[in-house]
C-alpha cells in the first residue's frame, strides 16, 4: 500500500479557475518525488491539497490508508501535523528569533494555552536545537529570523518542518528565490532528510538539472493534468517540449 495515493483529484477555485483536472498518482514511502510543470500548471495547488491547506473539489486523497479528502477540525490538524511543508518565500515569523520559529513547528502537538503563553517545554527547546543542527545553523538560534539570508531562512524553515517529525515533507519551489549555490545547499539538506531520516519528499521544482540530480521519480503537470510519470532519466527532449511547450529552452543550474 502506497503512503500517499491521489485519485482523480480536481480543484476549482471560487473564481472558476480549474487548477487540477483529474490527477492520479501514488507515492511510496521513502521516495523523493519531484513535480514539474509551468507556473500555473497546478503544482502548488496539488501540494496544498495533500496537506489539506486546500480542500479538493472532487477525487480522493489517501494518506497512510486514511481518506483525508474532506476531513475537518481535529482530524485535519492531526493530518497536517504529520506532514511538514516548506515554501518559496520561507514564511518564517518576522521579528521572532530562529529558535522560536523552529519550535512553532511543534504547535500541532502543543496544548493551545501553553503555546499562547509561550510555555514550550525544555524537551522542545532541545529538539529545536537538534533540528537546527541538522541544517547546520544552530549558532543562529537567538538571532531574529528576518535578519538571515534567504538560504539561511530556508534552512530554518526546514528545521521548523523537522520539528513535526514529518512522515512526509512538501516543498513548494524551495529554491526558486535563492541563488544557484544556495539552491544546491538547500536541496542537499532535503536529500539528506529523505535518505537519512527516510522521510518521503514531494518537491515542486523549476530547474530540470536539479530534478535529475535529486528526484527518484518525476511527475509533470500541464494545465492541471498529469502528463508524465516516470524516472528523471526518461525526460527526453520530446517530453520536455510537451511539458514546457515547443519554444522552451532548458536552463542549467550548476
Amino acid at each position: 500500500m502506497a503512503l500517499l495515493s491521489v485519485r482523480d483529484l480536481t480543484h476549482t477555485y471560487p473564481n472558476g479557475f480549474q487548477a487540477l483536472k483529474g490527477v492520479s498518482f501514488d507515492v511510496e514511502a521513502g521516495e523523493f518525488l519531484v513535480v514539474i510543470g509551468l507556473s500555473g500548471s497546478g503544482k502548488s495547488t496539488l501540494l496544498r491539497c495533500i496537506n489539506r491547506l486546500i480542500e479538493p473539489t472532487s477525487g480522493t486523497i489517501t494518506f497512510d490508508s486514511a481518506d483525508v479528502t474532506h476531513i475537518t477540525s481535529n482530524a485535519l490538524r492531526a493530518h497536517r501535523a504529520q506532514i511538514g511543508m516548506i515554501f518559496q518565500h520561507f514564511n518564517l515569523i518576522p521579528r521572532h528569533n530562529v529558535l522560536n520559529n523552529v519550535m512553532y513547528g511543534a504547535l500541532g502537538y502543543t496544548p493551545t494555552f501553553a503555546s499562547l503563553v509561550g510555555k514550550f517545554s525544555d524537551e522542545l527547546h532541545a529538539r529545536a536545537l537538534d533540528a537546527l543542527r541538522v541544517v547546520g545553523i544552530a549558532e543562529k538560534s537567538s538571532v531574529r529570523a528576518d535578519t538571515l539570508s534567504g538560504g539561511q531562512q530556508q534552512r530554518v524553515a526546514i528545521a521548523r518542518a523537522l520539528m513535526q517529525h514529518p512522515r512526509m515533507l512538501l516543498a513548494d519551489e524551495p529554491v526558486a528565490s535563492l541563488d544557484p549555490s544556495t539552491s544546491h545547499s538547500v536541496m542537499s539538506y532535503l536529500d539528506r532528510i529523505n535518505k537519512d531520516m527516510n522521510t518521503t519528499v514531494i518537491c515542486n521544482l523549476h530547474f530540470l538539472s536539479l530534478v535529475r540530480q535529486y528526484a527518484t521519480r518525476v511527475v509533470a503537470l500541464k494545465a492541471g493534468e498529469l502528463v508524465f510519470n516516470g524516472s528523471p532519466h526518461e525526460i527526453t527532449e520530446e517530453w520536455f517540449a510537451t511539458i514546457y511547450g515547443e519554444d522552451a529552452v532548458e536552463v542549467e543550474i550548476r
Binding site: R77, Q82, M85, F87, L107, A157
Partner: peptide, 13 residues
C-alpha cells in the same frame, strides 16, 4: 498570507 499558511501547515489551530 505566507506565515499564516506555514503555521496552519504545522497543524496549529
Amino acid at each position: 498570507e505566507g506565515p499564516i499558511e506555514a503555521i496552519s501547515a504545522t497543524g496549529a489551530n
